[in-house]
Design a protein around this nucleic acid. Sequence first.
RNA 1: GGGCCGUUAGCUCAGCCUGGUAGAGCAGCGGAUUUUUAAUCCGUUGGUCAGGGGUUCAAUUCCCCUACGGCCCA
Length: 494
Amino acid sequence: MKENELLTKRKEKIESLKADGIDLYPNDVIVTATTRSVLARFDNMDSDDLARIDEEFTLAGRLMAVRNFGKAAFINIQDSEGKIQAYVKKNTIGEKAFSVFERLDVGDIISLTGRVFKTKTGELTVEAVKIRLLSKAVRPLPEKWHGLTDVEKRYRQRHLDLIVNPEVREVFYNRSRIIQLIRNFMNERDFLEVETPMMHPMAGGAIARPFKTYHNALGMDFYLRIAPELYLKRLIVGGLERVYEINRSFRNEGVSTFHNPEFTMMEFYQTYATYEDLMDMTEELIIDISKELFGTYTINYQGMEIDLTPPWQRVTVEESIIKHCGIAPDILEDAGKAVEYAKSLGLPIKDGEPLGKVIMSIFDGMVEKNLIEPTFITDYPIEVSPLSRKSAGNPGFVDRFELYICGREIANAFSELNDPVDQRERFMMQIEARKAGDDEAHEMDEDYIQALEYGMPPTAGEGIGIDRLVMLFTNSPSIRDVILFPHMRSKVKD
RNA sequence: GGGCCGUUAGCUCAGCCUGGUAGAGCAGCGGAUUUUUAAUCCGUUGGUCAGGGGUUCAAUUCCCCUACGGCCCA
């Protein structure tokens, strides 16, 4: 097996540096400035002002470009906050140091000690008096101009993506910022951040297929959580009153630009609130993020301009179908007519599906993708909502909403079902559905019902998809663009 | 699960339709260059064309299978 010539060349340089007594991986550097701090302090000063500044500082980062002039060179150095140009002159740093500098490669981590000046093109530049190698790069970076565009390589080698594609970095800074804003928002409202188990003896709290694992010491199967819901509600029973968890959950389902099997959401529960209160709170949270990030309520997502100014539309599931499909309301009240209509649209309807599921199939197929402006869809059928409180006076439906923005579900919330007898009946309905072939139906959870039997206060709860929210706010077309290390199939051999 | 598309130098891409064992730019290497910024100028190295099979005198190119990835649909 022949080694790549580029690697061989670098190894030769490494040997040559070692022979000159250069430590390739020292750890005694003292960094006193960052690219951003230097630019912030000096970028708006003119050459005369800069000449009066008698201050040296040390920056560190990755060598990203070298423009060589024989006895001097311009280089770019990049740290986590940005990049800055430096000027390295043989006369200034000395012959020996310059010979070391000449053996550095793009990609090496270096430190640079010097003063600032402005070039004749007006760019703030650090004139190096000392340059040190801090960590040698053995492999070459992708191309300086096009960066790394192969999506497969970008996801498999995210470290390279982050080095050469600054906009990717920006996405993940924003992701972190959004999560921080959510946390602040919840903490200010006296919600307690908690952590509940990620391995559950039974998958509950959502309608989804779980991942399964085995606990050796306990000798039993566990399931990676599909939602933290049932544990958070146990905490409500326990009297915590306002809780939230920024949680990773797992659903053993297909991947798409909007679905990743491992995803992040925030779930929160508030006692003495209703799903209607949560609609107001959701509006506040999302505009708060928008204002903090961009200073505006307007976002641009994939060419769509979205106005987040509240109040947002609130429409029932049935109203939304009637409006978007232009059909008579009675079609949604009769299972036979609804099935016939759904089939006429080419939607896959299984025989014997209850009316509520047929209605949701029509909604998913015909309405969802058209909900571009932020819209709360309310009043879900009871068959698809086993943990939600029945609507007063409308027992086939529940007090629930989902938030849609840009045609995608962003949040799901409801007034919680806290009647243990009703909850048992709902689980029984799910078991019937499972017998009828719905293998995603919720299982009976006696332990949870027992918790409810101790009395859960009236409560409303919500889950907000954080990956999807980050997609909206970073204008990312794929969920994999907002997840640092999306799962990829292993390659057999390289 | 289905359909379409892709995989060629370290990176970004041509070449394939119409078969004759590969090209460019950047990076690298050698040389010139002390205000460039995709630096410039001269010279130059580098490839199991994703893997396997088939057709053919001859396959990166045509056909089939596999792997991995992307987009769309379910």
